[in-house]
Design a binder for these strands. Sequence first.
RNA 1: GCGAAAGUGGCGGAAUUGGCAGACGCACCAGACUUAGGAUCUGGCGGGGAAACCCAUGGGGGUUCGAGUCCCCCCUUUCGCACCA
Length: 849
Amino acid sequence: MARETQENKTIRDERYDAHNVETKWYERFQQDPTLYAAEVNSTKPKYYVLEMLPYPSGVLHMGHVRNYAIGDALARYMWMNGYNVLHPMGWDSFGLPAENAAISNNTPPREWTLRNIGNMKAQMKRLGFAYDWDREVTTCFPDYYRWNQWFFLKFYERGLAYRKKSRVNWCPNCATVLANEQVLANGCCWRHEATPVEQRDLEQWFLRITSYAEELLRDLGKLEDWPEKVRTMQRNWIGCSAGVLIDFKLAPSGSLPQSATITVFTTRVDTIYGATSLQLAPEHPLVADLTASDPALRDQVERMLAEQRKAKELGDIGEIEKHGVNTGRFAINPYNGERVPIWVANYILMEYGTGAIMSVPAHDQRDYDFAKKYRLEVRPVIQPRPSSELASQVDFATSAFTPTDGVLVNSGPFTGLQCEEAIKKMAEYAQQHGFGKPTITYRLKDWGVSRQRYWGTPIPMLYCEKDGIIPVPEKDLPVVLPDKVEITLSGGSPLANLPEFLNTTCPKCGGAARRETDTMDTFVDSSWYFYRYADAHNQRAPFDSNTIDYWFPIDQYIGGVEHAILHLIYSRFWTKVMRDMGIIKNDEPVKRLFTQGMVIKDGAKMSKSLGNVVTPDTMVERFGADAARIYSLFAAPPDRDLDWKDSGIEGIQRFLGRVYRLFVRNISPSLGTSADPDGRRPSAEARQIQRKLHQTIKRVSDDFQGRWHFNTSISAVMELVNQLYAVEDEISKLPAKLVAQVEKSLVLMLAPFAPYLAHELWEMLGEEGSLLRAPWPTYDPELAKEEEIEIAVQVNGKLRARIIVAHDAGRDLVEQRALSHEKVKAALAGKEIVKVIVVPGKLVNVVVR
RNA sequence: GCGAAAGUGGCGGAAUUGGCAGACGCACCAGACUUAGGAUCUGGCGGGGAAACCCAUGGGGGUUCGAGUCCCCCCUUUCGCACCA
């Protein structure tokens, strides 16, 4: 009876109870709030690792867990390598969902947000993420957003914040303005995928990001440690093209002033002698004047506009057929004085360039298509050189000739020039004669930051009847967002209905003034939050510049590729403005960027409607935080999508149990004290274990320093554990020092991935110091080398045999051994050996005829 | 349409520089221990074949002594851009 109890106890003790162990260490970790704190005035090299801050939507999802598991492993690894690590976390806590929740749950946005932050923070702590919570940034707190306002004033002073009436994307469901980026390809709202976005004209605040377009584009070249994909996306987004603006004067007629001109933007001024019409966007300001005297024309343009709007809503823009109307008016080509007809066409975008183009059907495919439809003249002015292979392909009966590899014809004084040269000369000519100038046009638009919503940073501006637009004086910041408001879905900001917020006095004249009621786009919050982490409690400034010098740029930023454009361009913009303000020195915020893949389930994105949502809480409860973390790193390389499978995490749970059991069974005082056999060469088994250990340390270390394929790091550790199991019966015969070294190294290697189990084992090993700062194990390349290696022997590239030789066996010996192998001899019978290729350490290939 | 990435067992994936394809894990099969096993341990596990061997990294060509890896063409999937003058 007593014996049975003893056995039961042993079995129970060998089984790893993740829940108990994790709870125990969770409580210990909570007792020391400085556990993960970055050092101030440290002499160590710094390392700033950052994961994108979450929106506090309510609960963490597996995508967060994966993102943070990557960053946490890296932070812990860097700590163990002696770095002063900054690893902070915060909350992107302004934004629309809080208002939606307010309406549907009747909970104030602030309360809802703070409750979610509480939940998610608890989840993060339970998952064991090593954040310096003392530096937590919550963007909806006045001590943070007051600096948004401060920056806004600075931007305004520098002419980088301005107000203009503009046609904006309006989501009737959100009842707010959307940035272009927030409009989906199908013309619907990014939050309401079935709600078509409308166009409205409103006074809006803009940030002049276009002033930095050139630098934002150029400096992409510096971001060598960013994924090429992200750089390409940003490059396309900024969309630079060099060309010339050319003024076409209107041919005199009717009521239009003779001085009126139409400016077109072109990258191919060399083709201008082939221009056979001008094409205006339907929204072009001159269109109204041009069509004023002709109601039928007016009508056609109106229909075109309506059709475009509809196409935009349906997402078919770009697919509607090109068509247009002839206004019956003419403009003068400044190069040759020719009269060209002015058309209005649906394929001309008002948002790009000047909203007007010169149409050269012979040398632009779109113009060609249009010209064919309306039987406009196709007039070639570029010819390929007769020697060029392009020459045979030219056929103006079927398509335009668009390459710049050619020579000008029928182009007045420019005839005979090569395209590239002509572009340069003709631009100069236009400038000299005052009807044009070289220009660079960007696709990038200024950043509209106004939102007609409540839950955001109030824009610190006032409107005085006498003095006009007046910035709130710095000393009056923050403009605090009032708590008591009624939130509705109707248009306009709820702040506009709040007299105590709205009405104030003008700081200039003392008279009555009205506050701006728009709030800022939340991308403002996330454009500079990572600077605040470096100096989170500063009351006098957004941060101290010297502190920023120490920590920046961020060494490693980790997040989803969905932020490749917006957040990461706005952040780069903000950094450059702050540099120009003189408060920071770095040109770029982020040195190295990593974009992790999505977590999916059954091949689809997790979503409530599909019922395939896996929640971190459930996983922690069933398998433990360590298992959830390791699985999210093990199931796929971090940059690829990860298909979540519960059976997979069970495998990790088993692995952790195996590690634990190994330690429980094989840690004993006798092992720790038994002396090594003196002067004797270690046994083959001992050498083998030692070799495996050094190989494992190498593999895991290499993965951290290189590709971040933690799936292979973890499998390396699994292999080590498997090998220890394979010799488990013999472990007591191995040198105690080696066993201790293997066990200690194993714990150290687990520490970045499974901090809870690692701490438990560390304690079991009787280690004194903190595991968090314990030095990462090192390997000896000599000890990692195999003593004997298997060499593949091929005959004509086909595997025929394997031989085992000493790792340092010479070529001749290897060749001789290979050729004397029975199977090889058989394969060589009756053949003539042409040559023998020996790749040391790898294989022998015998080439025969 | 343009651009990028990817395509390897039943599944997730490994093979970092051209050198033994399938590490590690899941699932599955067999065995051991057991009153029991949804615990644990051991072994097996790409396909064909009795075996020798043969076939196999989306398909087809090529370079090479040797190709998952390099080159060309095609197919599929995912992502980004999409009248940008």
